[in-house]
Design a binder for these strands. Structure first.
Lengths: 174, 174
DNA sequence: CAGTATCCTGTCCGATACTG
DNA sequence: CAGTATCGGACAGGATACTG
């Protein structure tokens, strides 16, 4: 479905899928997050055909998730490193791990997130940074944002007028 | 790539992709999270061809993310509602929204997560439930879990022996 | 080592027509 | 309303051979 704009391309989920929607893309990002940078490293880790790997890497570079960097001159050699956007994708990978472990790993988890120092297993949870509350329904919901077009607005009810929460720093006194 | 086991299918990310890897699947889950349940609702919201919608719904039911439920008898009618696994996918959708907003919405967010009561915009953040610390590198990392096979173990360094953290409740006294 | 070039298969998807 | 049936196009992905 890649090219032909997908449903409503203003949807941030659809836009994200535009970048990482192909099967291998997320697995390449996973490996890049593990520190792999070179063509043959990806190829061996993934067991992917070289032409396909070329295509996926090219796309990930185009969409700004990887950067192609020359690391040798004598024979020109390139490596692929995560951009900021690519690094920011890691929490999503971890959320996938948590979700997969919870529902599709009857034999127990084969990959876990751990504290680097203590080795204690972490339990990923999505919260609101400001209030620290877990992002669960019905406490939170999605809503049309400021840049929403008509189609989005129809799908998502608008956010209620934001009375700023008690956490708001220094509300201007009227 | 759907059927032919993808790379290493013990990887929880690959397993997750097995369920929601097709383009429409996540968008269907998005709509289901917004409360849509019926065939024509999905069709209108997504602008998807009916035969494709049939395929995706069938798959999502097979993989346990949606449940097909009869809601009328006289003409037999079915609706599609999220299972627990499907509901648990919502945080991932929200993480996608946050990621997409941050990197691919130069004109500002068209969809946001808000506090249902106050309308205050939330800022999704993945943390460790027990310690409350943000799941970021290098504080945390992924590691091979107890059920890991050789291939996984090779990709992910094993977790260090877990000296149980200070948060551990009532360590058994030796 | 880091790809490119070809050829091929599968299937995702769109469009359209039809049905109980 | 909730799909099924059929056709065709695009491309992802696999396999393999080849190159600087």
């Amino acid at each position: 479905m890649q090219r032909k704009s997908f449903g409503n391309m203003q949807c941030p989920i659809a836009r994200s899928l535009e970048r990482v929607g192909e099967w291998w893309s997320m697995l390449i990002l996973r490996d890049a997050s593990l520190g792999l940078t070179r063509f043959d490293q990806f190829q061996e880790s993934l067991g992917i055909a070289p032409n396909i790997l070329t295509r996926r890497l090219k796309r990930l570079v185009e969409t700004g998730l990887l950067e192609r960097r020359r690391y040798s001159d004598k024979p020109p050699r390139y490596e692929y490193v995560l951009t900021q956007a690519g690094r920011d994708f890691r929490p999503l990978l971890w959320a996938f791990i948590a979700w997969g472990n919870k529902h599709f790993a009857p034999e127990g988890p084969s990959v876990v997130i751990v504290d680097s120092k203590t080795g204690v297993e972490a339990d990923p949870l999505l919260i609101d940074r400001a209030s620290g509350r877990p992002l669960t329904m019905p406490d939170f919901r999605s809503a049309a944002g400021p840049a929403a077009n008509a189609q989005i607005r129809q799908r998502y009810p608008a956010a209620p007028r934001a009375r700023h929460a008690s956490t708001a720093p220094n509300p201007p006194h009227p």
